[in-house]
């Protein structure tokens, strides 16, 4: 079964609930993580939520010299193995969409969207349904 985000920018108000949901669903040591998703204004008052595209031929995977980024066959997400990551920032620099991020609140850990293991909190909490996680095919 394959899932995909469906984004309806027309519905996005830039309310940043997705950001909040993401940060809280990635809470560790009682500190919310850095959000992996951001509503970004592409024109005045026009927003689109931006997150990792989980590319097929992903630059982040290629750029990691230590094998810390791998496709999760169940969720389809490219997961970061925190135990293997040495925080060299290659993926942050290499991702053409800027979706590998540095979490300053957690000792500069690298973070990226992991689709919350198959049930993305951002989509769950999006009040306007601008962001929907949906079965495809």
């Amino acid at each position: 079964m394959k899932f995909q985000f469906e984004v309806k920018p027309s519905l996005c108000t830039g309310c940043r609930t997705c950001e909040l949901a993401c940060a809280f669903s990635h809470t560790r040591d009682k500190k919310p993580g850095r959000s992996r998703i951001y509503p970004i204004a592409y024109a005045p008052d026009k927003f689109v939520p931006v997150a990792c595209l989980q590319c097929d031929d992903a630059a982040c995977v290629k750029s990691c010299m230590f094998g810390a980024l791998k496709r999760n066959e169940t969720t389809g997400a490219i997961d970061l193995d925190r135990e293997r990551c040495v925080k060299c920032m290659a993926c942050v620099a290499a991702c053409p969409f800027g979706c590998a991020l540095v979490d300053e609140g957690h000792d500069n850990e690298i973070v990226k969207c992991d689709l919350c293991g198959g049930d993305p909190a951002c989509a769950h909490f999006c009040p306007t349904k601008a962001l929907v996680y949906k079965k495809i095919g």
Partner: peptide, 11 residues
């Protein structure tokens, strides 16, 4: 900047 770029492309 790359994220902004992506947003613009999507837009």
């Amino acid at each position: 900047c790359k994220r902004v770029e992506l947003a613009q492309k999507m837009g």
